[in-house]
Nucleic acid binder design. Structure first.
Lengths: 193, 193
DNA sequence: CGCATGCATTGAACTAGGACAAGAAATGAA
DNA sequence: TTCATTTCTTGTCCTAGTTCAATGCATGCG
């Protein structure tokens, strides 16, 4: 049950069994059906979720009413609106929604503080997770500015090979920042290479 | 001398005077003339720099040979290629260059570890800095995807009012992800509102 | 089973922004 | 002060991607 998340959190920091026990005792398991919105715009995001199973999307709605997907999170990924809500005390501008039936381990800011108090080494692990998150976001910014839609799509396929089977095309278009119609045109052009 | 950086690091975590003394003793002061490249693509970024005075830009060169500016850092900002280089052990894809004569406090990864060992509370402060950095990058991604060039420019002026006086227009265009010519056209259109 | 709603595809007309070129203005070095 | 280099502006043409249909295709659901 805990092996996935323990492996994940131990990726850059090595923990003793008793530290992992403390960690595991603070996690809250949650099973959530598909199409459930875990976080609405305007709410405070009071969780960080580790995806044990399933797929979620994090998105916002722009000034013209368009959904823009910021992140897909599948097995072994973390999802939260940590950057805006927690510590900043600002309501979130994003939605987090399950796309499939999901299982999570959840963490509230309070239990996270409790964890840091009981086992300070986790502060470091979460800093490194944050850093990786930043690297991914920066990479995405890089791609968004510098690549054509076709390049972005090919890179997406390369980077998330399973996701294109699991989620609807128009979600992928939204993630890539292009219209669903244009993605369709790109796909037909690629198909007849 | 240290008041600026101490104020900055104390923004979200409160430190005792002796902790700040340890911190300050580990900082390396550096004065650098304008147009100096502090980090080249392909190098390991082995510093985090706090800008005491001056202005730097962080940029990469895309597949078509275009410079794209990721960040301007002015007084009281941190700059580094922390996300890619440090901990990931990958050579950097970015350049960091001074645009004005600059003064910095520098930090190597090793002295940072030393700091965390001597005063663990800094681990927390740096995690929160990282988090804010992530928030800014996410906001920038948000804007890049969802806003028109004019909107991005107006928001830039609003957000960095002094910067448009300090740096060349074509750098701002590069930061906004648009051509210098198009920025010029936007400016004339705005001028005759 | 049939129906409705959402999803993907295709085409035609449109637009934001880019590429290129050439001149004007500003900056800076000797 | 002069000359050179960089920066900014303006115009023309061009293209990647959008918008708005219309149509066929899957689905899930009573």
């Amino acid at each position: 049950m805990y092996s996935q998340i323990n492996k994940n959190i131990s990726r850059y920091v090595t923990f003793k069994p008793e530290e992992l026990e403390i960690f595991n005792s603070l996690l809250e398991y949650k099973s959530v059906p598909k199409k459930t919105i875990l976080l609405h715009e305007g709410e405070m995001c009071n969780f960080e979720a580790f995806v044990i199973k399933g797929c979620v999307r994090k998105y916002y709605i722009d000034a013209n009413g368009f959904e823009v997907i910021l992140q897909f999170a599948i097995e072994n990924a973390w999802v939260s609106d940590i950057s805006f809500s927690i510590y900043e005390d600002k309501p979130s501008r994003v939605y987090i929604e399950t796309l499939e039936d999901c299982e999570f381990f959840m963490f509230s800011p309070d239990t996270k503080e409790e964890l840091f108090a009981k086992a300070p080494k986790f502060e470091r692990a979460f800093r490194i997770l944050m850093q990786r998150n930043l690297a991914v976001t920066q990479e995405r910014l890089f791609n968004t500015i510098s690549k054509t839609a076709t390049e972005k799509y090919l890179e997406f396929l390369d980077h998330y090979p399973t996701l294109s089977q699991r989620v609807a095309q128009h979600y992928i278009a939204s993630y890539l920042g292009i219209s669903a119609e244009f993605l369709s045109k790109i796909r037909t052009k690629i198909a007849k290479h």
